[in-house]
Design a binder for these strands. Structure first.
Lengths: 190, 190
DNA sequence: TCAGATTAGTCAACAATCTGACTATAGTCA
DNA sequence: TGACTATAGTCAGATTGTTGACTAATCTGA
């Protein structure tokens, strides 16, 4: 039950509507906690009922109205309490790695295509994250920001996301080249 | 519904009982697909009912009896079919990253302790994975194994696991040192 | 002007996962 | 002898997460 805490942590950045939160989640928080918009709306509703977040209606003329949420003192207390309790070990789920695990027993072709596609997706993600980090840093260089910048938390987690994507990308390139070389070695007639 | 495929991929290695599979999962497959023993037993039962795996009873005298499972032709076909369908994007869940995200708004002390603990856990995991890779490699060096070795799939996925752990470790060290430096800078009286 | 995208959000049904307790037998160590 | 660990596996119940459809307004481009 840590989605609630991921939501609270994301809302520390400022006031967001459910819709905006979904966007923010997708580029930032999704690096360590993936969630669908539906989950977020539901979780925000629960958190509001429990007094962890406070919502306020914003009437808009050119857009549908929305409700902005911010973390209450109680929400911050809950986050603090939770942060002090033991963390569960991290875990990854990755279909593609399952496929690579089996790649020397099943046709490698489709897996190779998916590895290539992943490289493209990772490259795009790397670009987005690099830009986001530059924006968070502002005028400062990385060392200075880590020493003195505001909101170093989101910066650190995005940095982890960036490094993860780079590693992931490099591994996909390696795996694809290894499997490709072996495919050629096995079926020289193709 | 990819746990079934992770189980099939793991069983390609050889015949395992549910209990053994749980062990194998924990060190190898858990790098990209985490599952509890209960899930595995359940999934094996389902897969057997559908003819994807075949179980055979092994009577033991010094241990409780067990059932060993292997992938059937039908199971391999299902795995092949699935491997050719589109992979979902990978996702991570990590409590500790959520805590770091919030670390500049809540007391950082407990988070720092957990980061240190993570470094220890990651170091242990790195050692286990390095040994596992050396065992899989046998006499060959890495390049040679990737070119000619048998079962390159599990090798590649373990390699990804090792790299992930190293990155994770390094990031935890960085995050802890950044947060620690800032804590000292903020509260010089402590 | 009409289709499609964007903003903003909701709901129900279903599938997957986790928690925690449970049964057994055999081996080890003090 | 009694406690603890390892092997081997099962079950029910609760929580979480996913799928897919739905409402409704406005804005954008062909």
């Amino acid at each position: 039950m840590a989605l609630r805490h991921a939501v609270l942590a994301a809302l520390l950045d400022g006031e967001y509507s459910g819709y905006q939160l979904a966007k923010v989640f997708d580029i930032g928080v999704a690096n360590f906690w993936h969630a669908l918009p539906q989950q977020l709306y539901l979780e925000l509703a629960k958190l509001e009922k429990e007094g962890m977040v406070a919502g306020r209606q914003v009437i808009q003329e050119t857009r549908p109205n929305k409700r902005l949420f911010k973390v209450t003192a109680e929400g911050l207390a809950e986050l603090t309490r939770w942060a002090a309790s033991a963390a569960k070990p991290s875990f990854i789920r990755d279909d593609l790695m399952v496929k690579v695990q089996a790649a020397d027993r099943i046709p490698a072709g489709p897996v190779l295509e998916q590895l290539d596609e992943r490289v493209r997706v990772a490259d795009a993600k790397i670009e987005v994250l690099a830009k986001l980090l530059a924006r968070l840093r502002g005028e400062l260089d990385e060392d200075a920001f880590l020493r003195e910048g505001e909101h170093v938390g989101p910066y650190l987690t995005c940095l982890r996301g960036l490094r993860f994507e780079r590693e992931h990308r490099d591994w996909c390139v390696l795996a694809a080249s290894v499997l490709r070389a072996r495919e050629v070695a096995c079926t020289p007639a193709t």
